[in-house]
Nucleic acid binder design. Structure first.
Lengths: 191, 191
DNA sequence: ACGGCTGCTATACGCCTGTATAGTTTGCTA
DNA sequence: TAGCAAACTATACAGGCGTATAGCAGCCGT
């Protein structure tokens, strides 16, 4: 609180006068960031979550917002969850279109794949950022830029070629979990 | 400190008496966990990082250690970094062998791929765990079990089939970043 | 039996944090 | 210009934290 007020150039009491409690301030900030993110998504052209993230990170204007979101995710608050679930929902929609357009392959469980891809991308970024020894908020955009670059090649390799040489592991899994082999691409109902 | 001592059933003063400062205690705990992890890796059969993580999470004996590690990674301390870098190093070795044995495909940048795969897997797990609304340490093993299960299918799909339908994106990237097409900067084993 | 060392507790100090309250300045309007 | 509400400050209070100090019980070699 005191640090926030100091950075704002006001006394600590004032921010309490305006926002009430600390949690209330946090809630308002969360709502504001969520709102801006949604606006961004609406006004922009249809982008994959990965593209959106890259854009958020590159543009200096959005960088603070981006680190705010990453922090929210890391800290596990309600805002973080909302953001991630939002991205997953977007990813599901986006994949559906992309599959229809013949850009990406269909999945046996599109929702699970979207969740997996979003959390992996977000989490991977988060881990690599938190493990950077000295990370100043000022060179955040640059750091993320370098990161996305170093991730580009492995991602594209994995996304177009996979890693495994043959299908045996996948087929074994499908056989053991879906019953008879050759079963249709149907997600199994969890008990 | 007080909570730790309470759980240990001793007075707060005692733990300070034995360990000195709080950071010293933390350092000893970090070292101990790192040591146990290394022992585990040495005594065990050669496992991929993913297998190791799954095992860590499933066995109730190792679950506390596993959440300790995850927390360290999330909090970005030295221990977390050491752990992640260790896993990456292991993954590099492991992939080398697996490539040699014809199990996984070679990469244009094996180190980058290993880093990408480890941080994604770890980060994805971390994000999904963090975003679980009510997470008790007692049902941690179960939570991780469910998580690994929900991740299994997308992972296998992605690892054996990829997501992209054609190679155009990858090829464009390779062309633009490596100069003239067909000029590999590292060993290149095309399919 | 006796110092002395070790394991251990009780209590308090100083610091930081979020919060509350009283008082002061500023700006708008009657 | 007077008055009043809103913006803003100064200061204090309570709680939690890591830490420091003083004291007590039990074990040990001599």
């Amino acid at each position: 609180m005191r640090e926030i007020s100091a950075r704002a150039g006001v006394s600590p009491g004032l921010i309490r006068h305006h926002f009430g409690t600390k949690d209330a301030l946090r809630a308002e900030c969360d709502a504001e960031v969520l709102r801006r993110y949604r606006d961004l998504k609406v006004e922009g052209i249809r982008m994959s979550p990965t593209e959106t993230m890259a854009m958020l990170a590159e543009l200096d204007d959005f960088a603070p917002m981006f680190v705010y979101i990453l922090r929210s995710v890391r800290d596990g608050g309600e805002a973080g969850r909302e953001f991630v679930e939002g991205m997953i929902a977007e990813a599901i929609d986006f994949s559906e279109d992309a599959v229809r357009e013949g850009v990406i392959k269909p999945s046996r469980d599109p929702a699970a794949r979207a969740r997996y891809l979003v959390t992996s991308a977000l989490g991977g970024l988060l881990v690599q950022l938190t493990l950077m020894p000295d990370l100043d908020l000022s060179d955040m955009p640059q750091a993320i830029h370098r990161l996305t670059e170093s991730i580009m090649l492995p991602t594209l390799e994995l996304f177009t070629e996979g890693v495994l040489v043959d299908r045996s592991v996948l087929d074994e899994y499908l056989a053991s979990s879906l019953g008879p082999p050759g079963a249709p691409d149907e997600e199994r109902a969890d008990t």
